[in-house]
Design a binder for these strands. Structure first.
Length: 957
DNA sequence: AGACTCACG
DNA sequence: ACGTACGTGAGTCTG
């Protein structure tokens, strides 16, 4: 033995592919693209993990294992093994060479062996290291299969992920998690339950929970099979019939620890990285922050470094009283860049940069004379981006702190607003009114609805066309987030000053912009306006290219001031009525509680699904064969389950009623009055224009798009939504069957079109066709079924789904669907064509070209593919309906303003608009509202709109 | 923080 | 063989 007793040896073995894949998908929502257009998410994620482990864990030995290039013995044992796994994403393919180079630059050995997977290599080396007396051995992977190898000294190190801290799984964890006695039994569990992601089949009908129970009892798959006689019913049948498959699955899940690979501790010894190589690689990849962390050279301003106003800003213009030389002396069109700090690299086209590294001229404008000068410049522009700084995010309470403007990239102006003097603040805002209300100047902004609302409180109605970069990006990437900082990173390779850097972290003593000297806010505010303008210049050509610019300019951008007004108006809530109803509900609830406790024979927390499940199924033994478990192993106690039990078990019905009433109480009756604005007695929801994947709006804080209507006790709540005063009434206008009409138009199905043209009730018409009876003989049961079928059609129907909804057999459901497609052949054709088109384009689109990307539509995973296929049908329909009502809203809003009417639009609920109207205007506005809704986007079938009025929202229906 | 349940179109 | 209707947001319990 040459080894001397020295410091403990600590070995880390990394599962490269598992870490790379996870890193890649972690960035899939907001990909990291560098200036060469390369997706570097996988590389960055992997390297971060590697660096973290090196710095925090300080291993003495380390190696990175890759899967061997050839098929493994597992593929030969089982043809389907990993068969459905997607081909490696292209981005990972291009990332691999970089990752290998980075590993080499760290002088870490790459472990790879033909015909073996990384887990076999890692397992083998881990055990040999243990035999060599290594004190600590960590297998670095997110993969649970490795649990089988864990011993006292071999542990799993799960790297930090999505906000979760890194986690070490030791033997104790593994035994507890799988409820087993030896780590080796993990493969028995996996053999029984299978692993969908690797196509390891397991035994049908056995999931995580059952597998644990069986292995606890029998110890191994083999022993279970030997005692198959002791099992009951379907389970016995399955274990018997699929015994071999279970054994094979166990074999596939087994990590082989006898890979022919020498164990050479010297080769695994950690040594110093090749800094030169790393610098070059990080430079090429534009990993700036990482380079700073790893290489400790080239100081970079990180987010932890505050901006120091004391240091003085070379780039800001002094604004002392004696310094009144014109700021705007430079001829228009020429921007003079001030010399940079010498430590700022700022190479164009280089890695992500920050304010300190980029040439800019940001000016703080604090005197009347300079403001006047700024205004004159603003009025000469055709397009200006602007941003408001305020004391908070709640538009009803936030006060203006300052305004920033930018019309040329790199050059921006910040105007602070006087604090603690409302009149002076108003006067300052009024100075800029000629610009803000100017109809000829395009206003660019990020989430303009917010700025519009703030300025509305100062009596400003923004004029001119709008361009909202948030909405521009929403159309480009509807299912991503549209946060400005991320957009700047992705599209401008620029890291803006974070708000936290400025006002500190969230906490009880949260500062606001108003607590800072204007000079501190200036750079931040100017940067926002600057970045926003630059984003506009990136997005506009992209939108043009994809045919989305018209949708943005004609629909999304013009909708912004409409929504701002709708939110600003709000809807009045009768809080007193809510209070009374709350007491009434509480009475019912208390009574139900007592009945439930009596039926259960004990008191328990009915609101806890866990306790409820135990009482119902363990204690009372309800359900017989109908018990279902959720994926976390709890009893499922959802509506579906309980309503099946209810006829035979009164307690189930009581619980359903209890659930309904407590939901009404907590979500609506108790919550809504608390959100009433003191100033006007109304609730002001926020409509989010950039969250749904299909183009719909969503409503939050409170959500006014899910106010109850389907049940009698729920409907009561609508009675508390009332007109603003005795002189007003509510008007509710609903599109009737808008989605089915769109389906009729898209498919051009003759039968469906005819029904709509003749004004026949569409569900009865469908029933008559599907059940092959004359229209007059359609009964309510047939109509109900046909209605469900019609909904199913819009959602991308499946026999299983329809069967569930109608509580009929799958066979019966399939027959109904067949009959439907026979009667409506064009619908079937349209659905097939939609899927085919989506397969080709990898996106679906609405009538106005709004896209929804559906990458999974070509997946080999049937579940994912099915999901995407149903979206290929649903997204264009739901999205077109959303487009239509948005157009109607814009036109109605414009008309009400043009006619100077007192009627106000106050809500949108997907296919419904609600108005608060002076009684005297009702008869005048209703026909025109109807007309504008019907005519928003003419289809080949007529649109119908139902309108009602009332003293509350329920009556108006 | 995530799972569960349930309110709406 | 599998898991399934489409799209949301909020309150509650639990780890």
């Amino acid at each position: 033995m040459t080894d001397t007793a020295a410091a403990p040896r600590k070995l880390f073995l990394l599962d490269a592919f598992a870490l790379i894949y996870r890193a890649h998908f972690a960035f899939s929502k907001n990909p990291r693209i560098n200036s060469k257009g390369m997706n570097t998410g996988a590389i960055l994620g992997f390297t971060n993990t590697l660096v973290e482990v090196l710095q925090k864990e300080k291993p003495t030995h380390i190696g990175v294992a890759f899967d061997g290039p050839k098929k493994t013995f597992r593929h030969e044992q089982f043809a389907a093994y990993k068969a459905q796994r997607q081909a490696m994403p292209e981005d990972i393919g291009t990332a691999l060479p970089y990752i290998k180079q980075i590993i080499q630059a760290f002088d870490i050995p790459i472990l790879i062996l033909d015909g073996f997977e990384a887990d076999d290599v890692i397992g083998t080396l881990a055990q040999r290291a243990e035999a060599h007396g290594f004190e600590e051995i960590y297998m670095m992977t997110p993969d649970k299969d490795y649990c089988q190898l864990v011993t006292d000294r071999i542990k799993i190190y799960r790297p930090a992920f999505m906000g979760n801290a890194a986690e070490i799984l030791d033997l104790d964890h593994v035994l507890k998690r799988f409820e087993i006695e030896r780590a080796g039994q993990v493969i028995d569990i996996l053999g029984l339950q299978g692993d969908a992601s690797d196509n390891i089949p397991g035994i049908p009908g056995i999931g995580e929970k059952t597998a644990k129970t069986l292995i606890q009892k029998y110890g191994s798959v083999e022993n279970l099979i030997a005692h198959v006689d002791e099992l009951k019913g379907k389970q016995q049948e399955n274990v018997r019939n699929f015994a071999e498959q279970g054994l094979l699955s166990k074999e596939l899940a087994t990590i082989h620890v006898n890979v022919p690979l020498p164990f050479e501790p010297e080769a695994l010894t950690l040594s110093a990285p090749d800094e030169e190589k790393l610098t070059a690689l990080f430079d090429e990849l534009e990993f700036r922050q990482l380079a700073a962390r790893v290489l400790k050279t080239a100081p970079v301003r990180t987010s932890a470094t505050p901006i120091s106003p004391a240091k003085g800003r070379k780039n800001s213009v002094p604004t002392g009283a004696g310094h009144q030389a014109s700021l705007f002396a430079a001829p228009a069109g020429i921007t003079e860049f001030v010399e940079e700090d010498e430590d700022a690299p700022g190479a164009p086209g280089g890695p992500r940069r920050t304010l300190a590294e980029v040439p800019h001229q940001y000016h703080l404008i604090e005197t009347p004379r300079l403001r006047q000068e700024l205004l004159e410049f603003l009025l000469r522009q055709t397009e200006v981006s602007f941003d408001t700084e305020t004391t908070g995010l709640d538009t009803m309470t936030a006060r203006l702190v300052g305004l920033s403007f930018c019309w040329r990239p790199g050059e921006a102006y910040y105007v602070p607003v006087p604090q603690d003097d409302a009149a002076a603040a108003q006067a300052l805002v009024d100075e800029f009114r000629p610009f803000l209300e100017h109809a000829g100047i395009t206003k660019v902004g990020q989430n303009l609805k917010y700025d519009l609302t703030i300025l509305k409180h100062y009596g400003i109605r923004i004029g001119g066309p709008l361009f909202d970069t948030m909405l521009a990006h929403y159309l480009l990437e509807p299912d991503m987030r549209h946060n400005m900082d991320v957009l700047a990173e992705t599209y401008l390779h620029y890291t803006p000053v974070s708000i936290t850097e400025l006002i500190g972290p969230k906490g009880k003593k949260q500062k606001t912009m108003a607590d800072l000297p204007p000079a501190d806010v200036s750079d931040y505010a100017c940067e926002d306006a600057d970045v926003t303008l630059q984003l506009k210049h990136v997005f506009e050509p992209k939108l043009q290219e994809l045919g989305l610019l018209k949708l943005l300019n004609d629909v999304e951008n013009p909708l912004v001031p409409v929504l701002a007004d709708v939110e600003y108006e709000g809807i009045r809530i009768d809080s007193a009525a809510m209070g009374e109803y709350s007491a009434q509900l509480q009475g019912y609830i208390t009574e139900l509680e007592q009945q439930i406790y009596a039926a259960a024979g004990q008191e328990f927390n009915i609101g806890s699904p866990k306790q409820l499940g135990e009482v119902l199924f363990d204690k009372l033994g309800l359900g017989g064969g109908k018990i279902r478990k959720t994926k976390t192993g709890q009893y499922a106690t959802g509506e579906e389950i309980l309503s099946v039990l209810a006829p035979d078990n009164p307690i189930a019905g009581l619980i359903l009623e209890y659930r309904q009433l407590t939901k009404l109480r907590s979500t609506y009756v108790e919550a809504l009055p608390q959100l009433v604005c003191e100033a006007d007695g109304r609730v002001h929801t926020s409509f989010n224009q950039a969250v749904t994947a299909t183009g719909r709006l969503s409503s939050t804080n409170p959500n006014l798009q899910n106010i109850p209507i389907r049940t009698e006790k729920g409907r009561e709540i609508r009675k508390a939504f009332v007109p603003r005063d005795a002189g007003h009434v509510l008007i509710a206008a609903d599109y009737s069957q808008i989605e089915l009409r769109i389906m009729a138009d898209f498919s051009q199905d003759a039968t469906m079109i005819e029904a709509f043209r003749n004004g026949i009730d569409i569900h009865s018409s469908t029933a008559s066709k599907v059940f092959k009876v004359p229209l007059s003989e359609v009964d309510s049961e047939m109509r109900r079924k046909a209605k469900t079928v019609n909904f199913g059609i819009i959602y991308g129907i499946s026999a299983f789904g329809l069967a569930q909804r109608l509580s009929i057999s799958r066979k019966e459901a399939a027959e109904i669907i067949d009959a439907y497609f026979e009667e409506f052949p064009a619908v079937k054709k349209f659905m097939d064509a939609s899927i085919n088109q989506a397969r080709e384009q990898e996106y679906a689109e609405t009538l106005l070209g709004r896209r929804r990307y559906l990458r999974d539509v070509n997946s080999r995973n049937a579940t994912l593919r099915g999901f995407a296929e149903r979206n290929a049908i649903n997204a264009p329909i739901q999205g077109t309906a959303a487009d239509i009502i948005k157009i109607a809203m814009i036109r109605i809003h414009a008309w009400l303003a043009a006619e100077n009417l007192g009627t106000r639009m106050i809500l949108q609920v997907h296919d419904e608009l609600v108005f608060d109207a002076p009684k005297a205007e009702v008869d005048y506005v209703i026909p025109r509202i109807k007309e504008l809704m019907i005519g928003a986007l003419p289809l080949s079938v007529p649109m119908e709109v139902e309108v009602g009025t009332g003293q509350n929202w329920l009556q108006a229906h």
